[in-house]
């Protein structure tokens, strides 16, 4: 088993190196996209699928991660040039690190915020997490808009150093995947699943459900922060309007399609949804149907995706993988 894992890991790394150096930029950009959405969806699936706490947080934490990394890797001189609405705050000018610490910082800031949100939300029962995290996404945007001396407001940040490439995004998705599986196959992951299945019974087993949910939420937030940092460096430009609920929605589709609670499924979901988004691009553009021009319909893709989500929930709730992993299937197969 161990050998198979190592083999898969080396194949993945070799592929990344090959792809980065040999594939055309368009393919590489799609692969980057898949990797980033994969990172985000893997972490999103931990809180939603494994711990069963319906949350709508990713866009908020991704935004935080993107801003933290961007502000940390931008040199002071470009900050001074860029901040048009107000001069940057001294701390903004002072902060500067290389890419890896910046990414880690993004994750840590997001995780700390997740912890702060956990306190009001996980003490109560019910579905408040969903609405609080939905609101959180808006609040982050409001702050990004208004705190102009920290964020440059609606103008956003430009010329962010493009440190990220496929080796970064691919490397981090591998790390994320391994971490998620390590969490799931530990007493903490078991407890998360117990909370998902029956919270009262989990409590009756002596499990502190507040902390279990908080661990899941903070871990999700950490990797969403890191993913946000990667995104900022890949896109080299960010603004508050980029991190809307649309982002969260795409991730939701990915994890529902792949299977709530299944990390292997999530990877497949990411490929299908990101590929599908590219493939369905024509829906949003001008179309000639029997000589009749339909005109451009921005948003039609999202109509299709929302119908897909509803249909999945109604008829194929378990997604492609259910809540199992590829390895579980091997085990079953051996018997």
């Amino acid at each position: 088993m161990k050998i198979i894992k190592l083999l898969m890991l080396s194949v993945a790394i070799l592929f990344l190196i090959f792809a980065q150096n040999n594939l055309d930029p368009y393919t590489v950009s799609i692969l980057n996209n898949i990797a980033i959405f994969g990172i985000l969806a893997l972490s999103y699936n931990l809180i939603n699928g494994v711990a069963g706490q319906f949350s709508l947080e990713p866009n908020g934490f991704v935004a935080i991660g993107a801003y933290v990394t961007a502000l940390l890797i931008l040199p002071a001189s470009s900050k001074i040039d860029m901040f048009a609405l107000e001069d940057p705050a001294p701390i903004i000018l002072a902060m500067h690190t290389s890419f890896l610490p910046a990414l880690l910082m993004s994750g840590i800031v997001a995780a700390v915020l997740a912890f702060i949100l956990s306190i009001p939300v996980f003490r109560v029962r019910g579905d408040y997490l969903a609405i609080v995290t939905l609101g959180f996404g808006f609040i982050i945007r409001i702050f990004a808009m208004n705190q102009t001396k920290y964020t440059n407001g609606a103008m956003g940040l430009n010329d962010i150093p493009d440190n990220a490439n496929l080796l970064w995004t691919g490397g981090i998705i591998i790390v994320t995947f391994i971490v998620m599986l390590n969490v799931i196959y530990s007493k903490y992951g078991r407890a998360m699943k117990a909370v998902r299945d029956d919270e009262d019974a989990a409590t009756a087993m002596g499990i502190n459900t507040f902390w279990i949910k908080t661990y899941a939420f903070m871990t999700s937030a950490f990797f969403e922060g890191v993913g946000g940092g990667l995104m900022a460096s890949l896109l080299t430009t960010i603004s508050p309007d980029q991190f809307t609920f649309l982002l969260t929605f795409q991730l939701l589709i990915i994890i529902v399609l792949g299977g709530l609670g299944s990390m292997s499924g999530t990877l497949i979901g990411a490929v299908l949804v990101m590929g599908g988004t590219e493939w369905l691009r024509f829906l949003d553009q001008n179309m000639d149907i029997f000589g009749y021009n339909t005109g451009a319909h921005p948003g039609l893709r999202m109509v299709v995706f929302s119908i897909l989500l509803i249909i999945m929930m109604l008829f194929a709730r378990r997604g492609i993988f259910g809540n199992k992993e590829l390895t579980d299937m091997f085990k079953r197969g051996k018997k």
Binding site: F54, L56, D127, A130, F245, F249, L252, V256, H297, P298, G299, L300, M302, V303, F305, S306, I307, L309, I310, M313, L314
Partner: peptide, 17 residues
Amino acid sequence: LITAIGISFFLENLFNV
């Protein structure tokens, strides 16, 4: 909750289109 979000997003985007 997921279908609820799906319906919400569906209505928003349908009207947007």
